[in-house]
C-alpha cells in the first residue's frame, strides 16, 4: 500500500541495517546466534579454555565420572573417557573439527553453487540443461551412503572429508540461485544493464548476485547444521577425522561400549552436537524471517 512506499523513502538506513534490526528483535534467534558465536570462540581459543590436554591419556582416570557424581573431581569437570582423557577438553577441541569442516564444506558448496546457479539461470540454453541434469542426478544420490563410499575410496584426511560432503551439498545453493536468477534476470534493471552494453559477467556478478544473496546466506546457515551432523555421522562410523584428533562423532562412538555404566562418555559430545545444531537452526530461522520475509508470509 502507498503507506509502505512512504516509509521506504523515509528510512534513510540501508536495507541490511533494517533487516539486522528485525533480527535483533527476535530474542530467541538472537540468543541462539550468541550460542553459535560462543561455540566459535571455544573452537578458536581451545588451547586457552580447555582445562587439560585433550590427547593426554592417563589410565588412572579411566572412565572417571563428572564432578557432581561420586568419585568425580574438578580436574575433569565432565569426567574422562576409556583412555582417561578429559571429556570437556576433547569437546572443546572437537568444536574445531565440527565448525571448521562445516564452514569449509558450506563455503566450497556455496561458491560452486552460486557460480553454477548463476550460469544456469542467466545464460540458459545448453549450460542450463547440463547443470540442471547434473543437479537432478545428484539429488537422486543417497547423501551419506555416497559420502561413505567416497571416503572409503579416497581414504581419510581433512580435504577428503570436505570433498566427500561437498560433492552434493552445492546442489542446494545452486537450485536456490538458479531459481532466484530466473526471476531477477527478467527485471528491468537487468535489462537496463544490457541496454547499456554490460557483459554477462558484469550482469551476473554485479547486478544479479547482490540481490539474491540474502536467501543464499539463509540457506547456507540452515545447511551448515546439516553438514555438521553428517560430519559427526562419518566420524561416528570411523570414516571421518582419524584418532586421536577429537571429533564429537567419534567420541559418541567411543562411548558406545560403556553407555550403561559410564553414560557420560557418549552423552556429553552428543549434547554438544545437539546444542550447536539446534542453535544454528534457530538462528538461521531468525535470519530467514528477518532477511527473506517471503518465506514467512
Amino acid at each position: 500500500m502507498s503507506v509502505i512506499e512512504t516509509n521506504a523513502t523515509v528510512a534513510a538506513e540501508s536495507l541490511f541495517r533494517r533487516n539486522m534490526a528485525a533480527f535483533m528483535e527476535n530474542r530467541l534467534a538472537f540468543g541462539s546466534a550468541i550460542v553459535v558465536v560462543l561455540f566459535v570462540f571455544m573452537a578458536i581459543f581451545a588451547p586457552w579454555i580447555a582445562p587439560n590436554d585433550p590427547y593426554n591419556t592417563n589410565l588412572f582416570f579411566r572412565l572417571q565420572p563428572p564432578v557432581w557424581m561420586d568419585g568425580g573431581e574438578w580436574a575433569y569437570p565432565l569426567g574422562a573417557d576409556a583412555l582417561g582423557r578429559c571429556i570437556l577438553s576433547r569437546i572443546i577441541y572437537g568444536a574445531r573439527v565440527s565448525i571448521f569442516i562445516g564452514a569449509a564444506v558450506i563455503l566450497v558448496a556455496t561458491t560452486v553453487g552460486i557460480l553454477a546457479g548463476l550460469a544456469a539461470g542467466y545464460l540458459r540454453g545448453w549450460v542450463d540443461v547440463v547443470i540442471s541434469r547434473l543437479v537432478d542426478i545428484l539429488l537422486g544420490f543417497p547423501y551419506l551412503i555416497f559420502a561413505i563410499g567416497l571416503m572409503a575410496m579416497m581414504g581419510p584426511g581433512l580435504g577428503n572429508i570436505i570433498l566427500a560432503l561437498a560433492y552434493k551439498e552445492w546442489v542446494i545453493p545452486c537450485r536456490v540461485v538458479r531459481g532466484e536468477t530466473l526471476v531477477t534476470r527478467e527485471l528491468e534493471y537487468v535489462e537496463a544493464a544490457r541496454a547499456l552494453g554490460a557483459s554477462s559477467k558484469h550482469i551476473m556478478l554485479r547486478e544479479i548476485l547482490p540481490n539474491i544473496l540474502s536467501p543464499v546466506i539463509v540457506v547456507a546457515t540452515i545447511r551448515m547444521a546439516h553438514v555438521i551432523i553428517l560430519e559427526a555421522s562419518l566420524s561416528f562410523l570411523g570414516l571421518g577425522v582419524q584418532p586421536p584428533t577429537a571429533s564429537w562423532g567419534a567420541m559418541v562412538a567411543d562411548g558406545r561400549a560403556f553407555i550403561l555404566e559410564s553414560w557420560w562418555v557418549s552423552t556429553f559430545p552428543g549434547v554438544a552436537i545437539l546444542l550447536l545444531v539446534l542453535a544454528i537452526n534457530v538462528a538461521s530461522q531468525g535470519l530467514r524471517d528477518a532477511f527473506d520475509p517471503r518465506f514467512t508470509e
Binding site: S2, V3, N7, V10, A11, R18, A21
Partner: peptide
C-alpha cells in the same frame, strides 16, 4: 494512523 519504525504515519 499507521505506527511504523520511522514514526507515526497519519494516512
Amino acid at each position: 494512523v499507521f505506527d511504523t519504525r520511522a514514526g507515526r504515519v497519519c494516512a
